[in-house]
Amino acid sequence: MDIIVESLTKKYGLQRAVDNISFDIQKGEIIGFLGPNGAGKTTTMKILTCFMAPTEGDVRVGGFSIREHPEKIKQMIGYLPEHNALYQDMTVMDSLRFVAQIQGVDKKILDRRIHEMIVRTGLNPEKHKKIGELSKGYKQRVGLAQAMIHDPQILILDEPTSGLDPNQIVEIRNLIREIGEEKTVVLSTHILPEVEATCSRILIINKGKIVADGTAASLRTQAQGQEILKVRLEDVDDRNLVFMSLRQLESVAMVDFLSASEMVFEIHSKAGMSSRRGIFEMCVRNQWVITELSGIETRLEDIFRDLTMN
């Protein structure tokens, strides 16, 4: 099920929470929606889930417009809201049954679906408890279970791992990845490693506008534009000789010392060129021993900061 967002704008008074954004999401993608607090992530999700109408623009989900067929779209979407509000005085079973019924799950498969969800999210030991009595991690699982109960084509998760312990985070991420194999998943977060761990594509939003769109790898190349290598050598006496030799390589744009005492260099290649082979051949000629030759990756944090802090 595709999601097509067309020049979406949402104003709160004079403030533009979402400012003329457009993007497409194809079936089977796991989209990470990144952005600082107040960037417009939650507002966009509220519009995608038909909770709010946009001021301008439109969203089409599987061909249906949110303005004309919100009921159809709501049925195709499973949504875990930001603060995961649940009916505290209902039991896990009752609340899942209620959501399943209201989402139009067939009576014949209702009990089976509830059972499947409970097993899949590991809620079995807690299923007869009231939701208000559950720990935060279990509540989050109930939230996920209610979002998936009607087997939606699209899952929209607003900060799915917030407040969970590291073990639960891993579990939930695995679950999301598993679901992502067959469904479209849109998840928002400001935990960057989470995006790398789970998402096939990243959208960074800042002040209501999309500032980056691509895979983690493509964002990195886009951000740095050139290869950066770290080289560590042994059995070399003269640091300056190495420095000069490296600079003479055709593909090298810049060389820098990374350490005052050790033979460690940072090498920036010219755009579109790689220096790995040249460095290796040069070291072989000079009989220098390479103990490390690795690419330095721009961290996602840096990209994020670059894009979201003017």
Partner: peptide, 11 residues
């Protein structure tokens, strides 16, 4: 906040 839960369902 359960209103959001309810109104994002097919009702």
């Amino acid at each position: 906040g359960t209103l959001e839960l309810l109104l994002t369902k097919a009702v």
